[in-house]
Amino acid sequence: MQVPATFAYERADSVPHALELLERYGPEARVVAGGHSLIPMMKLRLAQPEALIDINGLAGELGRIAVEGDELAIGAMVRHTELLESVTATDLFPIFRDAERVIADPIVRNRGTVGGSLCQGDPSEDLAAVFAALRATAVVQGPGGVRTVPVRRFHQGPYETAVAPNELLIQLRVPVAAGTGSAYEKVERRAGDWPVAAAGAVLRIEGGTIVQAGIGLTAVGAPHFCAPEAETYLEGREPGEEAFAEAGRIAAEGCAPHADQRGPADYKRHLAAELTRRALVRAAGRS
């Protein structure tokens, strides 16, 4: 039987209450939402937080998906399943459907949350690449109030994020623009596995020209889960197989994948190029 070490447990009933509890327990406390990353690590005693602040009571407050002005707002407590089933989100950005269909399995998706996925900061996290491709903004609340962080500056290293120990990620905001197509491509060893590599693409095409490109990459050591050189290369060009293949090559050059049992580095780099190309082709088809 796997059993975690001793920890204190508190259940927050509002965002201010959660912040108060974080303040009280200090940096050795951890926020638990879906718990599908943190709890397994605790059972293996790879993580031994002194206290868990349970924010599942905030599912109402932080569980909304809605278009607000020219942004799509996604609450941090939105479950993967809810994002997958949100017609509002997936009609605007099919990349969410592509990605959420291949994140873990239905049991995990029923519990795991969008905010939890990002805050865990796993270097193989799918949603990190999705939101990077979408150029989303993270909304973080702390004792001093609310601040925003571009998602591309949210992750500061493996398992490290811009959220301070006394802060809470409360929302993701995604800019909405006409003519946008998006897609996500992932290779996994088995359904439910973490990606060997995955790529997301978001293209805004106006008058036959790419006016903005977003490329997100995960599990391949892409800094901040994105590929800015490849995006720059595409912007101003006409969409096409050759341009997308070249963008894939450029994106792969910016990656620094590590070998592990999912695959050697050369294969992952190859996938970075191949999956970027495929995601761009599909995104262009959807714009």
């Binding site: 060893r189 060997v196 070998a259 592990d260 049992q261 999912r262 695959g263 050697p264 294969y267 190859h270």
Partner: peptide, 22 residues
């Protein structure tokens, strides 16, 4: 025959599946 293994086999550079992936 994981995706990585198949890709390496196709490229003529298979690895030992019983050891750490190089």
């Amino acid at each position: 025959l994981t995706p990585a293994n198949v890709w390496r086999v196709v490229n003529g550079n298979p690895f030992r599946t019983d050891l750490a992936v190089p």
